[in-house]
Simulated scan of single mutants.
Amino acid sequence: MTTTVFVDGRVFGLEARGGVSRVNYEWLKALSGRIHFHLFHGFYQDMYDWSVIRLDRNDGVRRSSTIRGLGRLSLVMERPWMERCWRASHRAGCSIFHATYYRIPRSLHEARLLVCDYDCIHERYPDMFRDTKEVVKRKRHAFNHADTVITISESSKQDLIEFYGLQEDKIRVAHLGVSSFFRLPEEKIEKGNPPYLLYVGSRATYKNFAIVERFFRETMTDMDLIVVGGPSLEECRWPGGGRRLWVRADDERLRSLYWGACALIYPSMYEGFGLPPLEALACGCPVVASDIPVLREVLGEHAEYFSCTDVDDLEAAVNRALGWTEKRRLEGHNYAKTYTWERSASVLQDCYRQLS
Rank of each mutant, 00 (worst) to 15 (best):
R17F: 15
G19Y: 05
P239V: 12
R244I: 01
P276N: 12
V200D: 08
K188M: 10
Y258E: 02
C94H: 04
H36M: 01
L299P: 03
L198E: 08
P126V: 08
E134R: 15
L257M: 07
P195W: 07
C120G: 01
R183E: 06
V178P: 05
A316Y: 07
E123S: 00
D313Y: 03
R84E: 06
D224R: 03
A263T: 01
G229K: 03
C351A: 15
E301D: 15
L113I: 13
M82Y: 15
V20S: 10
T309M: 07
Y305E: 11
H333V: 14
T205D: 14
I171P: 02
E110Q: 12
T132I: 06
V200R: 07
W50A: 03
H38I: 12
C120L: 04
W81C: 05
L113Y: 08
R72E: 14
G13V: 12
G241A: 11
L198T: 06
L281G: 04
W81G: 07
Y44M: 09
R237F: 12
S268W: 00
Y196I: 05
T219K: 13
I226L: 10
Y164E: 03
E304G: 06
T148S: 08
V135W: 10
T148A: 10
Q45G: 00
K191T: 10
D159S: 02
Y25N: 05
C262V: 07
G60T: 14
L39C: 08
T338V: 14
I189M: 11
V288L: 06
F40R: 10
D46H: 09
R253P: 08
V287L: 15
T338H: 14
S290K: 00
K29F: 00
V298Y: 04
K207A: 12
F216Q: 03
A303C: 10
K207C: 10
E26K: 11
A317I: 11
V20A: 04
V347D: 06
W27Q: 12
E326A: 13
G33M: 00
F306I: 11
F40I: 14
L233F: 10
I292K: 00
G240T: 11
C285Y: 06
V5K: 00
L197R: 02
